[in-house]
Design a protein around this nucleic acid. Structure first.
Lengths: 211, 211
DNA sequence: TCCTAAATCCCCATTTTCGGGGATGCGATA
DNA sequence: TATCGCATCCCCGAAAATGGGGATTTAGGA
């Protein structure tokens, strides 16, 4: 009997999944969570085999939750669930410790297969997902390593830029010189491979660095 | 017996809903669709009482589908379903002809209530949703009328800006003078209430005008 | 200890945006 | 018909961003 924890901030989706899984007699939904914190709390209290975790959740998202979980409860397996078939995104999820990733637009069979595979200790990626990952690795190898993480300060500056502040205004707000802000801006443009502010913001959104 | 058509591009969600609704003996899921076109096609073929329609779908989204449906099949009632509790968004859905709107993060009960209410010919908005709508109308009245729709050309220019093209490059791409692009850019800044390109792109993302 | 990354600061030339102004033609619609 | 929105085009000056260059300090890891 596999003990499942369902984590999704959309109650309706959780209800649907539960009702979908209740027919399977080797599966048992032992709990629900609507954010990452609740997942961690639940796993502290009760034994769980697999967490079926939506990635986009408020308070603490699925990626952060997977990271924490793999530290505190390495025996708990995480199956990532999301609508996004995006290379960087999937890559983040797997790096965070998830053993599997399933798109929300796949069917019941795929989900059951993923659960069974994870249960046996192997990892599971649906066909579409593994295709996306592979194509990414092949095409964007030089791009990949350059997609460095932003420093805290850079993220802060990025947010300010996105909200429409000019370099000078950001300098005032953060109590630094405008030259410093200019440097951060330059580094952001370089790191996000953008030619100007517009592309910077677009890429930031696509790479989920803001919002 | 109420005939339901489920429209959502996430097969897993559809499967979940179906399994959730199968217990209700006054409800009957007569079909599924994964985009707006399929909804219209299905309604051309078979009688449907209520379409439970995800708003964010590829090919033809729920808003467009609702609009078409209210022309061609006014008897078919639409229950909008989405994760977004956003005033403008909900308003668009209702304007498109949907009789109800339910958030995906509400529970089974809320959905059943919505179906029953729509069945009786009344409209249904969950508590959260109606709160959002009302607060919006009260707070943003002057803002509201100014949130005009963008023209086709403006949207096109917006996309170009977002992808990092300069005014000159956009002019070349669209075979117009750069003065024209400048004018469009100015109008975009005005319409989206942005002070500069960065805020323009940010607001465009927030108002779902791109991506 | 040495090395590196991050954060801070500075200068300068070129390009682009921003925010005013104004103008024409066209098609819809009131 | 007359107005209105849309798309097109034009000019200009001030402000900001862009893209080079260079620099110091501090904190942390190898």
């Amino acid at each position: 009997m596999t003990r499942l924890l369902l984590a999704d901030d959309h109650q309706l989706f959780v209800d649907g999944l539960k009702s979908l899984l209740v027919d399977e007699d080797d599966l048992c939904v032992v709990g629900e969570a609507s954010n990452g914190h609740e997942v961690l709390e639940f796993c502290d209290r009760e034994p769980v085999d697999i967490v079926i975790m939506d990635i986009n959740m408020p308070v603490m998202d699925g990626i952060q939750a997977s990271r924490e979980l793999s530290k505190k409860h390495p025996s708990v397996k995480v199956l990532g669930l999301s609508m996004y078939n995006d290379r960087d995104f999937i890559s983040d999820v797997l790096k965070a410790g998830a053993l599997g990733y399933v798109l929300k637009n796949t069917g019941k069979e795929s989900l059951l297969k993923a659960i069974a595979t994870l249960r046996s200790g192997e990892s599971y990626l649906s066909d579409e997902v593994s295709k996306t990952l592979l194509s990414g690795f092949i095409r964007h190898m030089p791009y990949e390593q350059a997609a460095e993480k932003l420093s805290d300060r850079e993220s802060e500056v990025l947010e300010c830029i996105a909200s429409g502040l000019t370099t000078h205004e950001i300098a005032d707000k953060l109590f630094i010189s405008k030259n410093t802000v200019e440097t951060h801006r330059k580094n952001l443009l370089y790191k996000l491979r953008a030619r100007n502010t517009a592309e910077l913001i677009t890429n930031a959104y696509k790479q989920r660095l803001i919002q």
